[in-house]
């Protein structure tokens, strides 16, 4: 009888220790797994901050964001009007200009052609007053929508926010 109790207690002890040990090994794997996640210096590139105060109407700058170029354009009233006029025209990839901007005067575009990934040329180079991709001749309008050429989709609008009146933050902060 006494021996049986002893056996049971040992079984429990071994079981509990095994579980505890396995949990420890599993926990020890975590730092190894986590070491693959983007490191602090990479995460710091998740967002790009842009001071937009020096931008004059009609002026455009290219800023790097996560290693890719982003166009930031302060649109003139004419550009805005032209973009809004486009809403009612026949578009290969229909989208309202109002849905592509947070402030009508500021257009933020991921400058990667949706055809084969070239970087389009600055504002005013294409038909419709917009951007021309030099590789295969895709024309994007003043809202970054595809109007002519082989590209299937509009230029992508990255996630962005305004930190204050003059500071644009492109991208979402991770972690």
């Amino acid at each position: 009888m006494a021996i049986e109790v002893e056996e049971n207690r040992r079984d429990f002890l071994i079981l509990a220790t095994s579980a505890f040990g396995v949990a420890g090994v599993a926990a020890a794997a975590w730092p190894f797994i986590r070491s693959w996640s983007p490191s602090a210096d990479v995460l710091a590139q998740a967002t790009s901050e842009v001071d937009i105060s020096p931008l004059q109407p009609g002026q455009m700058i290219t800023v790097p964001w996560q290693g890719k170029p982003v166009f930031v354009l302060r649109r003139t009233p004419e550009m805005i009007a032209s973009a809004q006029k486009g809403d009612s025209e026949s578009l290969p990839d229909p989208a309202k200009d109002a849905d592509r901007v947070k402030r009508p005067e500021l257009l933020v575009l991921l400058a990667v052609c949706t055809h084969l990934g070239c970087v389009p040329q600055p504002i005013g180079t294409g038909d419709y007053g917009g951007f021309l991709c030099p590789c295969h001749g895709s024309h994007y309008d003043t809202s970054g929508r595809i109007r002519k050429g082989p590209a299937p989709k509009n230029l992508e609008v990255p996630h962005y926010d305004f930190k204050d009146a003059n500071t644009l933050v492109i991208g979402k902060a991770l972690a």
């Binding site: 040992r10 002890l13 071994i14 509990a16 220790t17 505890f20 040990g21 420890g24 926990a27």
Partner: peptide, 15 residues
């Protein structure tokens, strides 16, 4: 964690 684990291992070893 290691203190607890080692004490448990020692107890089993003794038994």
């Amino acid at each position: 964690y290691l203190f607890v684990l080692t004490i448990l291992l020692y107890a089993i070893k003794r038994r």
